[in-house]
């Protein structure tokens, strides 16, 4: 494994981190305002929920292939697919977080004379943090997993050494285990980081890893 750290594993890991980070950042940047809109105008929520549930059933391999005619064998293709999957996870979770404020709390806030914007910024959003971070955890971990499938299109990411190894007549175990292990370790470290983030931002929320 040490022999191939420099030429294979390290670049693959860096690409994988980039693929994941871009997808989650863009996904969040779209999902968050969209959820705020849907929260303000309630009618949007149900249709978006059903569409995203169906979108999530599209197999990643198929989605990557179907995007090729539009954006070719590029990172754009991969990111469009990855961003779609993060949207599907993030949107309902942010919505659930925004809805989680108890009615009494909302009434108390209104009674104290807070404006709508103040209620959102000082009451609803802070209370939504645990659910939002919960959504981010699922989104990050599944993006790390789905990004390995990108290797069917592009020679990038931690999936590529695995795809190459599988094409050999006798699959190279070292590459499968080392690249696979790195992908899992990366996913778990992101997850633990987000748990720490939640503890820092919302210390009142449930403890433990759940």
């Amino acid at each position: 494994m040490r022999d191939h750290w420099g030429d294979t594993l390290q670049p693959a890991l860096v690409q994988h981190v980039e693929l994941t980070a871009i997808a989650v950042v863009i996904g969040f940047a779209i999902a968050f305002p969209l959820a705020l809109l849907a929260h303000r105008y309630g009618r949007l929520e149900h249709p978006v929920g059903v569409v995203s549930a169906l979108l999530y059933t599209i197999p990643s391999l198929a989605l990557f292939q179907l995007l090729i005619p539009f954006s070719g064998l590029t990172w754009t293709t991969v990111e469009i697919a990855l961003v779609s999957y993060t949207l599907v996870i993030l949107f309902p979770n942010i919505m659930a977080g925004l809805h989680s404020t108890p009615d009494e709390v909302l009434e108390a806030a209104q009674g104290m004379g807070l404006t709508r914007l103040q209620v959102l910024l000082r009451v609803e959003l802070p209370l939504a943090i645990p659910a939002i971070v919960g959504g981010l955890r699922v989104a990050v971990v599944s993006t790390v997993a789905i990004a390995t499938i990108a290797a069917f299109l592009l020679p990038d990411g931690l999936g590529y050494p695995i795809v190459l190894a599988l094409k050999e007549p006798t699959p190279f175990k070292t590459e499968i285990y080392s690249a696979g292990g790195l992908a899992i370790a990366f996913a778990i470290s992101c997850d633990l980081l987000l748990v720490a983030l939640r503890r820092a931002l919302a210390p009142w929320a449930v403890t433990g890893l759940a």
Partner: peptide
């Protein structure tokens, strides 16, 4: 969630 399908299959 954390086990990529490709890794599992491989």
């Amino acid at each position: 969630r954390a086990l990529p399908s490709l890794v599992l299959i491989a």
